Computed example of a mutant assay.
Amino acid sequence: MPDIVTMEVDRGIALLTLNRPDKLNALSYALIDRLMALLDEIEVTDDIRAVILTGAGDRAFSAGADIPEFTASVAQGPNRAVRDFVRRGQAMTARLEAFSKPVIAAVNGLAFGGGCEITEAVHLAVASERALFAKPEINLGMPPTFGGTQRLPRLAGRKRSLALLLTGDSFSPAHALQIGLVNAVVPHDQLLPAAYDLARRILRHSPLAVAGIITAVTRGLNQSIGEGLEMEREQFARMVPTHDLGEGLRAWAARRQPVYTGR
């Protein structure tokens, strides 16, 4: 059987594809577990410096949770449903959000429920003009459970987020761009090229500096401004003794391109 998440590596960029196109790339427990295992592998592979995450097929990035599987967990009561479904989904989005290497979603179609929550959690996102987003959990009589009640308001603001969360209405990639859910909307055939271009523009820079920025921003958002500034100072201090900061300064003085080593 085909892998439910595939990985291809090209010049330091790992392309992860959610590979259940016949199920609109629904987030089964096995798919989430496989995605987490691949992230573990990528994290310790120095030659991989960025991740692009997309969906297989022409219809969906991910239509959200695997409802039959989730329904079976709900039937076994709240403890089982929370353990199998909520904790697994929240661990996935938290992992994506805090991942030390940049993660870019290439949203190629439907991004409903958990698919939208993945888009909220990753560092950057590019959407096809064919993409469609929704927070439809309320139609099932429940709130979002993979972080959608927390991350979307931080991105879009309370009132705009509540309008989407409380109605379940779908929204366009243009609206996703307007509210800060995605960074760009591009023609469908330019989606992966645009995601790769964004990744390569990041890869020009020190991987240590990239990781420091991701850490400072991700952790700082959930702290006071004073605590966030302390996090920023800590990340800078970590860079001071490194080759990469010295190389960046030397290259600037010599008016040449720096050669970073990640050390």
Rank of each mutant, 00 (worst) to 15 (best):
D3C: 00
V9W: 10
R11E: 15
T17N: 08
Y29D: 13
L38N: 04
V44S: 13
V51G: 04
L53Q: 02
A56F: 07
G57R: 09
A60K: 09
G64E: 08
P68M: 11
R80S: 01
D84C: 02
G89K: 07
R95Y: 02
A98S: 12
A98N: 07
K101D: 04
V107H: 01
E117M: 02
T119H: 01
V122Q: 02
V122C: 03
H123M: 05
A131G: 04
L132K: 11
A134E: 09
N139P: 00
P144R: 09
F146S: 07
G147Q: 03
A156W: 02
L162D: 14
A163C: 03
L177G: 01
L177R: 12
L181T: 10
L181H: 05
V186E: 05
D197Y: 10
L198H: 13
I202C: 13
I202P: 07
R204A: 03
S206I: 11
A211C: 04
T215H: 15
T215A: 15
L221G: 00
S224T: 15
E227G: 03
E232F: 11
R233Q: 10
E234C: 06
E234D: 15
L249V: 15
A251C: 06
R255P: 00
Q257W: 00
T261N: 10
T261Y: 09
G262P: 11
